[in-house]
Nucleic acid binder design. Structure first.
Lengths: 332, 332
DNA sequence: CTGAAAGCGCTTACAG
DNA sequence: CTGAAAGCGCTTACAG
């Protein structure tokens, strides 16, 4: 390359990197050689020697890239990264702590400049020795445990409280909680919000109305018949996650109860407005979460060394019909 | 590192790479030094010197990572890549040829081992000089133009023919075609399938029933009133893409026509079964497309040098109700 | 079984 | 304005 252009390697480097102070004639001959050889600078080599060691790539470890929440979050990260000329590695964790550790190692071995993590593990203390110093980590969706880092999370407690308060304000007093595995911090937070709302309105807490471990739509659907067959069945459901909401709605509609049992879901999902009744939800904003996380991350990469921050993105109640069904409409 | 372990750099390299023929005592001392220093081998450095130059990373350029089709495809790619201990870079093209070229360059500069491309450009001849020799490219969703490479696509012509034949078999003769921009090859193929089905059944082609350029759900929704106000309105709709299907359905439901105008969509979407009526679609299989593409790609990386192949993934008619509405139910 | 030397494609730190 | 030498963290190709 340098030989073809008739200049030194160093001059090639200067032209490629747009450094000033190269004779126009030499710039020209380098540019011509680039075209002639289809020359593409090797970024992995340049990052190796570069003082800051930056690779201009960051890694995102999310729950499941095929799930709309993760996919939208991923897309928001990509957009901000693109503005900074940075590329994105991505991986799905599927609630597996082993996979999390494996991917963290894979990404640090490739010297990603920073990590974005929606952790599957219950404790991230291992990051202390697993992540090289100077590599910022930003948590999304779930706050860190045993590790000090920036985080961007939805207001899980507040959102759940808002959902359940909405149902109470429509006259419900027997409200079921349908949740994911309680090991998941966001699932616990949403249960906490549910309980806070009950307490605040003097509605007794009935453990029979709490169903945990609904890891997917199928399990949520399967859990409903038992719940609705209780001696004193719920007149309303709070579904603490979007897959659960869909599974529960699927059962209600199959049993033709969708206009008789109220339901409010946590986390919005596509087409919720087209169902009949439309499904009332407390919407998270995955795009806002992703943008905020990426901005925090690039601030760190730019040298921001303030103490860790946790950004809480508010949720929003979206009223569509299913959450406004009165208890009198319930099955008897 | 080598100093701490009391061995040469080369022996460290052997232990890290699990090469045989190292004295057990030396293996031990290297392993201890690894722990002591939290040592992580630098994969970018090793790929630089390695003969094959492999980085164990491949790049996927898809339409829009937030769209369910791309997201599922992405996830399938990730799963196969994971089986090969390879990581995935990903980027969204948003139908922008410029973005495509930009990302191709970014990924080749980082020496991705292979590329997976759902092209936004109308001609990919530029890949000839843009992609280094020995870097396999596999096309997904859309076949290459002006470039020779493997491809995995859905059966767009056949699927569209199947959808429209289904409507004809239910008695429809005025069937509208709702399509994306005709510059998109899959959009053209689906129009072709539509026309083939009409011809095969002696149904006259009426250009008034063909609407192009519906780039998103909003435009599809907005296009319907005009179409339904024609002197001889369609009794059925073929929506040639999932966003278009959703937009069209949204209008039908708003106008309370969802039980009167038949609709079949190309490409399935979540919750299509929960709408009323359920939406009949010709389903693509993004997971199958992704898996097939990844397998083709890893075969190439393993040395397969057979001529380029194009794999066509069949579509599947999913009957749910909206496609079985008879023409007599139509608005008058 | 082990290691010293060279080199992957770049940038750094100089010297001129 | 330009380039020769050294070095980033590894692997290769040897030699012993």
């Amino acid at each position: 390359m340098a030989a073809i252009a008739g200049v030194s390697m160093k001059t090639v480097s200067r032209v490629i990197n747009g450094e000033p102070g190269v004779a126009p004639a030499k710039v020209k001959s380098v540019e011509q050689a680039v075209r002639q050889l289809d020359y593409r600078p090797n970024l992995t080599a340049s990052s190796l020697r570069r003082l800051d060691g930056r690779t201009a790539a960051v890694a995102a470890l999310l729950e499941d890239l095929a799930n709309p929440f993760s996919a939208e979050l991923h897309r928001a990260l990509e957009d901000v990264a693109h503005d900074h000329d940075v590329l994105l590695f991505a991986g799905s964790l599927d609630e597996s702590p082993e996979r999390e550790k494996q991917l963290i190692r894979a990404f640090t071995s490739r010297r990603a400049d920073a990590l974005i993590l929606a952790p599957a593990s219950s404790d991230q203390g291992y990051l202390t020795y697993e992540v090289p110093e100077g590599t910022p980590v930003v948590f999304v969706d779930r706050a860190p445990v045993g590790y000090e880092a920036d985080a961007v999370v939805a207001d899980n407690v507040g959102g759940a409280r808002q959902a359940v308060t909405h149902l109470i304000s429509h006259g419900h007093r027997r409200i079921a909680f349908l949740g994911d595995r309680p090991a998941i911090p966001t699932a616990r937070d949403r249960l906490e919000g549910y309980q806070q709302a009950l307490r605040a309105h003097g509605v007794p807490f009935d453990p029979d109305l709490v169903v945990h471990g609904l890891e997917d739509a199928g399990r949520a659907e399967a859990a409903l018949p038992g719940l609705l067959a209780l001696p004193a069945p719920p007149t309303a459901l709070f579904a603490a996650q979007n897959e659960i909401t869909v599974g529960a709605f699927r059962h209600l509609q199959a049993a033709d109860l969708q206009h008789h049992v109220a339901i409010v879901g946590f986390d919005d999902f596509p087409l919720a407005d087209l169902l009949r009744p439309g499904v009332t939800v407390v919407a998270q904003d995955p795009t806002a979460i992703g943008r905020a996380a990426a901005e925090l991350l690039f601030a760190r990469l730019a040298g921001d060394s303030a103490p860790s921050r946790t950004v809480v993105i508010p949720t929003r109640l979206v009223v569509r019909g299913s959450g406004e069904i009165p208890p009198s409409a319930g099955p008897r």
